[in-house]
Nucleic acid binder design. Structure first.
Length: 647
RNA sequence: GCCCACGUAGCUCAGUCGGUAGAGCACAUCCUUGGUAAGGAUGAGGUCAUCGGUUCAAGUCCGAUCGUGGGCUCCA
C-alpha cells in the first residue's frame, strides 16, 4: 500500500501503522501539516489497525489549535448525522467549530429536549464506535445542488448559490454527506471525547428577520482526559461567577419587584463601588479633568436636537409632567455640551475635559440582561473632551496611556479594537481619515497590539474599544474612545481661534472602565471575590478567642479605624475556628486574633487570608502592614499615587 | 424581542404517581469560654414567583405575566 502526501509517495511498512509511515517519511512539522490540512479518507489508506492510528494521531491533534478545530468540526458532522438519523425530517444548515467546541444549526418542527440531546449523544457514541472513514469528493456546484435537492436540504442549496463557486467539496462518513470545505479527521473513531452541552435558538444567517433554528452546542477534545479537564475548568469558572459571589459576599441583589437589569447595592458592594469611584475621581483630577454633573432627566426637545430621539428612542425611558415630556438620559454628553456652550471658549481654553460618573438608563432588550455585565441602569465613568483638531492626536495618545495604567493596576489582560467608518455614516472623508489616523497613530505610538474592525465604527465617528474577558471567557466591552463629528455640529459648538474666527472643536467621548457595574462584575470574577486590600470592603477583622478579650478587641478595632483602616470586630460567643472560617469565606484580607496572650502583650496575632501567618505584632505594626498592603499597587511604575483608603 | 430551561424558607437545594411542605447552612434562645476553616440542644421561619384554568384534590398538569439562566439578534 502507498499513500501520497504533499506530492510525495510513501509506502506503508508491513505490519506498521499509517502514522509510523508518516513519521518515517516526513519531518514532524510536515506530518502535522499533512494531518491538519489534508486529513481525510481519500488521502489516508487506513488498512492499518485503527486503534493504533487513532492513538498515534491523537497527540498530533491535541498538539495544535488547528487539530482541535478539525476534531470539533468533524464532531459537528457526527452530530448532524445522529440528528438526521433520529429525526429524519430535520433540515441541516451549518455546523462550524467554535472556541472549545462546535455547534450545528437545525431546522426542525419541534424544539429539541434535554432527552433528545442524550439520545443524540448516544447515537454519536455509536458512530464513533463504528469507526467509519471520512471521505472527500469534489464535484460541480450543479452536481452538489442536485445531490442536496434530492435530500430536501434547501439550506444547502442556498449556501451553494451563495458560494458562487464552480466546484464544491463534500464529505461523507457512513450514510451522512455534508457540503464542507474540510478538512476532517480520517475516521470517526478518533472522536472519543465529545459531549453535547446545550440547545439554543439561533437565526438563519444570524438575521433576526429569518427563521429561528435550533442550535446544539457541544465540545470535543482529543482524548477523554482533556474533555474532563475542560469540564472541570468550566465548573471552576462557574464558582467565580460574579452573580454567585455577589450573593455569597453580600455585595448586591436584583429584585423582580424592581425590574430586570436594576441592581441594588448592599453595604459591602456599595462600599467597593464608592472606593472605585473615589479612585477614579482622583485619577481624573490628577490628569487634568474637571468634575461635572448633569441631571438625570432632560427635556425631550433636547434629545430631538441631539438626534437621540430619532436614533435611540426605543432604548430610552421617558417621563412626563405638566404636559412636558422628559427623556431619562441614556448617555451624559448633552449636559456636558451645554457646559461648554455656557460661555465663549478661546483656543487657549482647549481642550476642555469634563468627567462625570453619570447614571444612565437604557432599556436593553430583556434577553440580553446579564448579572452586572449588561443592565438597564448603570454608571458610566464618562468624559467628553472638546479639543482643537490639532490636539486630537495628543489627547488620544494620553488617553491610551491612561487606559493602560488603569488596566495594569488591576492586572487585566485586555484586547483593543479599532473600528473604522461604516457604510451608513455622516461626516467628510477628511474628518474620518484624520480621526481614524489619530486613533491608529496613538495605538501604534503606544506600541500596543490591536485588531481592526473595518466598518464597525459608530455612524458619527471611528472608535477604539477595550474588551475584557469574564470567568467564562466571554468578552465584554469596557473602555471606549469615540470621535464624534455630529454633536459639535448639531449644537453649534465653537471656539475662537488665534485668527479671531470661530472654529469647530472635535468631541471625544470616552470611558475607562466603561460602566462601574460591568467593571465590578469583571473585577469580582478576576479576583474570585478576594479584592485587593485597597478595594476590600472590610480590610481587617478582629477575632476574639473568648469573651474575656472583648474590651481589648474593641480597642484594637478603634485604633485601626482611627488609622483609616476598614475594620470590624467579631465579638460573638463562638469558637475561634468558626470565626476564622467565616472571615475566610468572607475573603477578609487580614484576621487579627486576640486571646489572653495578645491582651497581655498589648498585641494582635495576624493571619492573612491566603494562609500566610505573620504572627504576633503590635497594633501599630499591624496597622502599618495593612496600610502598606493597601498602597502597594500604587507604588508601581507610573502609578505612584497618594491614595487614601479612609472612609 | 426570539428559542429553550428554570423560579419551593434569607442562602443552597430535596419533594416519587396530583393527595395539602422537607434538609443543611444562616437566624433566635439556652448550654458551652473553646487558640486559627463548622461545639451542642431547642425554636422560629413558606400565599411553593404572580394571575388564571383543569381536577373531588395542584408545589406537581395547562395557559398567561413577571423574573432568572444558556444562546441568538441588538449594543450610541
Amino acid at each position: 500500500m502507498s499513500i501520497t502526501i504533499e506530492g510525495q509517495q510513501i509506502d506503508t511498512p508491513k505490519g506498521g501503522s499509517i502514522a509510523e509511515a508518516f513519521q518515517q517519511a516526513l519531518s514532524k512539522k510536515q506530518l502535522k501539516r499533512a494531518v491538519v490540512a489534508r486529513c481525510n479518507g481519500n488521502l489516508l489508506d487506513l488498512s492499518a489497525p485503527v486503534p493504533d492510528v487513532c492513538a498515534e494521531l491523537t497527540p498530533v491533534y491535541a498538539d495544535s489549535e488547528e487539530g482541535l478545530d478539525i476534531i470539533r468540526h468533524s464532531a459537528s458532522h457526527l452530530m448532524a448525522e445522529a440528528v438526521k438519523k433520529l429525526f429524519p425530517t430535520v433540515k441541516v444548515t451549518i455546523g462550524p467549530s467554535v472556541d472549545n467546541g462546535f455547534y450545528y444549526d437545525f431546522d426542525y418542527e419541534r424544539p429539541f429536549t434535554p432527552e433528545d440531546l442524550e439520545a443524540i449523544e448516544a447515537e454519536m457514541t455509536r458512530s464513533v464506535g463504528a469507526d467509519k472513514p471520512f471521505s472527500r469528493r469534489e464535484m460541480s456546484a450543479q452536481e452538489a445542488k442536485d445531490l442536496f435537492a434530492a435530500q430536501g436540504e434547501d439550506y444547502k442549496l442556498e449556501i451553494i448559490d451563495d458560494l458562487g463557486a464552480d466546484h464544491v467539496s463534500i464529505y461523507t462518513h457512513g450514510e451522512f454527506t455534508d457540503l464542507c470545505r474540510g478538512p476532517h479527521v480520517p475516521r470517526t473513531g478518533v472522536l472519543g471525547a465529545v459531549k453535547l452541552l446545550s440547545v439554543a435558538g439561533a437565526y438563519w444567517r444570524g438575521d433576526e428577520k429569518n427563521k429561528q433554528l435550533q442550535r446544539i452546542y457541544g465540545t470535543a477534545w482529543a482524548d477523554p482526559k482533556s474533555l474532563k479537564k475542560y469540564l472541570n475548568q468550566l465548573e471552576e469558572a462557574r464558582k467565580r461567577d460574579h452573580r454567585k459571589l455577589g450573593t455569597q459576599l453580600d455585595l448586591f441583589s436584583v429584585h423582580e419587584e424592581i425590574g430586570g437589569g436594576m441592581i441594588v447595592w448592599h453595604p459591602k458592594g456599595a462600599l467597593v463601588r464608592t472606593i472605585l469611584e473615589d479612585f477614579e475621581r482622583k485619577e481624573h483630577l490628577k490628569r487634568g479633568y474637571e468634575l461635572v454633573q448633569g441631571p438625570l432627566i432632560l427635556k425631550r426637545e433636547l434629545w430631538e436636537k441631539s438626534g437621540h430621539y430619532d436614533n435611540y428612542r426605543e432604548n430610552m425611558y421617558f417621563t412626563e409632567i405638566d404636559e412636558q415630556a422628559y427623556g431619562i438620559k441614556p448617555m451624559n454628553c448633552l449636559s456636558h455640551m451645554l457646559i461648554y456652550k455656557s460661555r465663549i471658549r478661546s483656543y487657549r481654553d482647549m481642550p476642555q475635559r469634563y468627567f462625570e460618573l453619570g447614571l444612565v438608563h437604557r432599556h436593553e432588550k430583556s434577553g440580553v440582561l446579564h448579572g452586572l455585565m449588561r443592565v438597564r441602569s448603570f454608571t458610566q465613568d464618562d468624559a467628553h473632551l472638546l479639543c482643537r483638531p490639532d490636539q486630537v492626536q495628543d489627547e488620544i495618545v494620553t488617553l491610551i496611556g491612561f487606559i493602560r495604567d488603569i488596566m495594569d493596576l488591576f492586572g487585566f489582560q485586555y484586547r483593543l479594537e479599532l473600528s473604522t467608518r461604516p457604510e451608513k455614516s455622516i461626516g467628510s472623508d477628511a474628518d474620518w481619515d484624520r480621526a481614524t489616523e489619530a486613533l491608529r497613530g496613538a495605538l501604534e505610538a503606544a506600541g500596543l497590539e490591536y485588531r481592526v474592525n473595518e466598518g464597525d465604527g459608530a455612524f458619527y465617528g471611528p472608535k477604539i474599544d477595550v474588551h475584557l474577558v469574564d470567568a467564562l471567557e466571554r468578552s465584554w466591552q469596557c473602555g471606549t474612545i469615540q470621535c464624534d463629528f455630529t454633536l459639535p455640529e448639531r449644537f453649534d459648538l465653537v471656539y475662537v481661534g488665534e485668527d479671531g474666527a470661530r472654529h469647530r472643536p472635535v468631541m471625544i467621548h470616552r470611558t475607562i472602565l466603561g460602566s462601574i457595574e460591568r467593571f465590578l462584575g469583571i473585577l469580582i470574577e478576576h479576583y474570585a471575590g478576594a479584592f485587593p486590600v485597597w478595594l476590600a470592603p472590610v480590610q481587617a477583622r478582629v477575632l476574639t478567642v473568648t469573651d474575656a478579650q472583648k474590651e481589648h478587641a474593641e480597642g484594637v478595632r478603634a485604633a485601626l479605624a482611627a488609622r483609616g483602616i476598614r475594620v470590624e470586630a467579631d465579638l460573638r460567643n463562638e469558637k475561634l475556628g468558626y470565626k476564622v472560617r467565616e472571615a475566610q469565606l468572607d475573603k477578609v484580607p487580614y484576621m487579627l486574633v486576640v486571646g489572653d496572650k495578645e491582651v497581655e502583650a498589648g498585641a494582635v496575632n495576624v493571619r492573612w487570608r491566603d494562609g500566610d501567618d505573620p504572627g504576633l505584632m503590635t497594633i501599630e505594626e499591624a496597622a502599618g502592614l495593612i496600610l502598606s498592603a493597601a498602597m502597594a499597587p500604587f507604588e508601581r511604575g507610573g502609578m505612584r499615587y497618594s491614595f487614601s483608603t479612609t472612609f
